[in-house]
Nucleic acid binder design. Structure first.
Length: 469
RNA sequence: GGCGCCAUCGUCUAGCCUGGUUAGGACGCAGGGUUUUCAACCCUGUAACACGGGUUCGAAUCCCGUUGGCGCUACCA
């Protein structure tokens, strides 16, 4: 049988990184078994589902390169199929109409809380004859429930191992609000069956839904798929990762300038690890090496530092021309030339964790920041000494012809002077004059990018500041 | 409350199944090195088997319990 997996997000919010990881594991498992990875939008809840989130989810998946097989399925477009199965269940008396009002149900729950027992609704309406039910239906509101058979359900989860539930604790579970409005657990079972899903890989938050779904599968006479419940991705305080913890949607990370490959690599490492100590993988390697049975059972914290480090490693492996394309949007306001972009890429490829950082780190190249004259002096050095050194530097640089003004010529001309007068005393003021910042690449690299004219200008400006102060 | 899942450095984790390791790696952090600072790079260091019993010559590893964390408990998904 062909392996088929799926990701089934509900369009009730932006594409969450947790959804991204679940999708990825489904994708990996499908690919390594030469199967198919499908996409289904779970939009049966009309009130909570919002149309605008669907493109967000689709774009997130596409950005990550998690391409799904065939047309995406919208649950809402499958209602007639749900209705048919619902009718079957009703006819075979495996399901029934429950006429209890929400008030009655709430009351029941309250009493159960007092008795300190599990909340469940065991409905006596399952014994109403179908004629009576049809009659009552004309004047009463009702939902459809499963006549839950009480038994032990044991299933083998691919990551958790054997899991056991007692269905008598469940009560008669709800299937649909009415014939045309299926509820989650029922819709999932029918849709997975219709799509011939063989492996359900999903978040641990669905573990408790599994016995309910197995009950529905049995009532419908479907084949039971394999299950794999993934540990949750947690925030730093071990709570559920949500918006208040900063970036959590895939979209946020796209904007910040993360690479999709790095994101995927990082996500794979939360909850999964190979046998050896390798950490950086491309997709093909991951497809080959990923192993569901090696997935962690405990939840893992989303550590942004680790993500940054992985992203940084990916950037370092890129050629400057490629990096230039990614940093261009963040430098837009300076209208940089292609050549400038490549130089910047070259200069910062080893220090960028994410592309958006380039704005802060490399902005000085295009526009000299405002800085204090005192920054020009190295350690405890005086203004006079700083001025003196800067003037020496200026003279040396002015003597270099414009067309040979590069990293090599400036280094060979300047270093003997720096060695003679003190490296810190010479190079620190030079670097600050050129960058206006306490931290930057080396002065020679900056000289090279800026060119003779601009470099000289900036040094003169620094001298001016020193004179004023 | 009920039910379920889980528990190795601060974090992600290897080791656990098939008891005997100086409990390994990575991120972070600290220190040192390298033609100035920072970064990068190299080196070194830091730091963990939640607790209590049991089984055993021997337990991170097997068993039981405790504690703690998380999830689910809808006419949401």
């Amino acid at each position: 049988m062909k392996v088929r997996t799926r990701i089934a997000p509900s369009p009730t919010g932006h594409m969450h990184v947790g959804t991204a990881r679940t999708a990825f594991f489904n994708y990996l498992f499908a690919k390594q078994n030469h199967g198919e990875f499908l996409l289904r939008i779970e939009d049966t809840d009309i009130e909570r589902s919002k149309k605008e989130y669907e493109p967000d989810i689709l774009n997130g998946l596409k950005w990550l390169g998690l391409n799904w097989e065939g047309e995406l399925v919208r649950q809402s477009e499958k209602v007639s199929i749900h209705t048919n199965y619902l009718k079957k269940l009703l006819e075979s008396k495996k399901a029934f109409y429950c006429f209890h009002t929400t008030e009655e149900l709430e009351e029941e729950q309250k009493n159960q809380a007092l008795e300190k027992i599990s909340f469940k609704h065991e409905c006596e309406h399952k014994n109403i004859s179908s004629e009576e039910a049809t009659n009552k239906l004309k004047t009463n509101n009702a939902i459809i429930r499963l006549k839950t058979p009480y038994k032990k359900i044991i299933f083998k989860d691919l990551v958790k191992g054997e899991v056991e539930f007692d269905t008598s604790l469940l009560g008669d579970i709800s299937l649909a609000k009415n014939l045309d409005t299926p509820l989650y657990n029922f819709a999932v079972v029918v849709d997975d069956h219709e799509s011939e899903i063989t492996h359900i890989i999903r978040g641990e938050d669905h573990l408790s839904n599994t016995p309910k779904q197995i009950l529905i599968i049995e009532a419908l006479g479907f084949n039971q798929p394999e299950y794999a419940h993934l540990p949750l991705i947690l925030a730093t305080d071990r709570s559920k990762l949500s918006k208040r913890h900063g970036a959590v949607s895939v979209n946020d990370f796209t904007k910040l300038g993360y690479l999709p490959e790095a994101m995927l690599n990082f996500l794979a490492l939360i909850g999964w690890h190979p046998k050896d100590e390798k950490e950086i993988f491309n997709i093909e390697e991951l497809i080959k090496e990923f192993d569901l049975t090696r997935v962690q059972k405990a939840g893992g914290i989303f550590d942004i530092e680790k993500l940054n480090s992985i992203n940084n490693q990916y950037i370092k492996n890129m050629v400057p021309a490629e990096i230039a394309k990614f940093i261009a949007p963040y430098l837009d306001m300076y209208n940089p030339t292609e050549a400038q972009l490549i130089k910047v890429a070259h200069l910062f490829r080893e220090r960028l964790n994410i592309f958006s950082e380039v704005k802060e780190l490399a902005g000085f190249i295009f526009a000299l920041p405002i800085y204090e004259a005192s920054l020009l002096s190295w350690k405890e050095s005086s203004k006079e000494k700083t001025k003196e050194k800067l003037e020496v530097v200026l003279n040396v640089l002015e003597s270099i012809p414009e067309d040979s003004f590069d990293i090599d010529s400036t280094t060979t001309e300047l270093m003997p002077k720096a060695n003679e007068l003190g490296r810190g005393e010479v190079l620190w003021p030079l670097r600050v004059a050129l960058s206006g910042m306490a931290k930057s690449p080396s002065p020679f690299e900056i000289l090279d990018v800026l060119g003779k004219k601009e470099s000289i200008n900036r040094i003169k400006k620094a001298l001016g500041k020193l004179n004023e102060a």
